[in-house]
């Protein structure tokens, strides 16, 4: 990947929440690159820091969250150095967000069309109202809603249509980077597939970059090229979706796959990962996944595993070299069960 091809670069970013109990290390040393036109999936369980990371890109973090190290660069410019005015301009026009629940994104007292047009007017000065009308109608067709319904109020839309309207709003200014935060979590399967389809089609049409945040690896599998697996504020594994999901090299990814029910193929029994995510206020030394990992050895308890990169694949595990053998063991339910004592 050439240097000037990188749209967003996150470099050893540390984001800590300041609480009365101490610092919560929500994001702790994350490095990621998003190339122009690339679709990156960010997968992890609740509390792994994925939403904090994405909010940081748009500088939408609450006041008690501080950047304790590292930097994010958008088109080579450090995001923390931008003025409040610059960042406001950047949101929506350069980077836009598809929120988890469209109910919160749409104002119930204004017509949906008016809200989309408002966004265009504020961000693109001097645009004619005829052009606004045309583009709003266009974007509605693209997300699969009849442009006549631009005159509707949000409550007249079904859940899936609201989500599509939120996507339309996020895309109306042709952003270079779309961040989708669990865009389909609350939706039914068919509507979910329709939304993913729209996001895919639009992303290809506009050739913007996409970051998809979700806890659902199947959503990533269907929409992204690259995937980063996050756990306890750190990236455990990163690489091409096909490589990571079909051939995981980190015990956590292996565990996630084991726990994921599938409609296809032979019915295997589901294996959960024992234990629960670590305390991010006083993290234990060593690998943060070690207490839940069936393959943890002495070094895992004391040393933080370095991120090893090979062919664009990054894995943070001390036992990466032995992974082929461990992978076979990981399919055995009893290997994971031995660890069960902490409950979940």
């Amino acid at each position: 990947m050439s240097r000037d091809n990188i749209l967003l670069k996150i470099d050893d970013l540390k984001l800590y929440y300041h609480t009365t109990a101490g610092y919560v290390r929500a994001v702790d040393g994350v490095s990621l690159n998003v190339a122009v036109g690339e679709r990156l999936g960010l997968v992890g369980e609740s509390g792994c820091g994925k939403t904090t990371l994405m909010k940081a890109i748009l500088r939408l973090l609450p006041a008690n969250c501080r950047q304790m190290g590292g930097e994010m660069y958008y088109k080579g410019k450090a995001i923390s150095s931008l003025s409040e005015k610059e960042i406001k301009k950047m949101r929506w026009q350069e980077i836009s967000m598809i929120p988890q629940s469209a109910m919160n994104a749409l104002d119930p007292v204004y017509r949906i069309g008016a809200q989309i047009k408002e966004a265009m007017k504020t961000h693109q000065k001097g645009i004619s109202s005829k052009e606004i009308q045309e583009r709003a109608a266009n974007i509605f067709e693209l997300v699969g809603i009849n442009p006549k319904r631009l005159r509707d109020y949000p409550h007249q839309f079904s859940g899936g249509m609201k989500q599509r309207a939120a996507i339309a709003m996020a895309l109306v200014l042709d952003p270079n980077l779309i961040i989708a935060d669990e865009p389909t979590t609350a939706l039914d399967v068919i509507v979910q597939a329709q939304i993913l389809e729209r996001i895919n089609a639009l992303q290809q049409r506009y050739s913007g970059s996409l970051i998809m945040i979700t806890h659902d690896i199947s959503v990533i599998a269907q929409t992204c090229e690259k995937v980063a697996v996050m756990y306890a504020g750190k990236i455990m594994e990163y690489g091409k979706v096909r490589d990571v999901l079909n051939n995981p090299l980190h015990p956590y990814t292996l565990g996630l796959k084991n726990a994921f029910p599938s409609l296809l193929g032979e019915k295997k029994s589901l294996i959960s990962i024992p234990g629960s995510p670590p305390d991010l206020i006083k993290p234990q030394p060593g690998c943060l996944f070690a207490p839940r990992c069936p393959f943890a050895i002495a070094v895992c308890q004391t040393e933080d595993p370095p991120a090893k990169e090979e062919d664009g694949r990054i894995v943070a595990c001390h036992r990466l070299a032995e992974m082929e053998g461990l992978k076979v063991l990981a399919e055995d339910e009893t290997i994971w069960e031995r660890k069960v004592h902490a409950g979940d």
Partner: peptide, 25 residues
């Protein structure tokens, strides 16, 4: 058929399909 085909799979080689259903509920 429509419901099952629309389910996203954790394997990127199997794609969901939407051509088995039209319209809104």
């Amino acid at each position: 058929v429509a419901l099952l085909e629309a389910v996203p799979h954790p394997n990127p080689d199997y794609k969901y399909r939407l051509d088995n259903i039209t319209g809104e509920v």
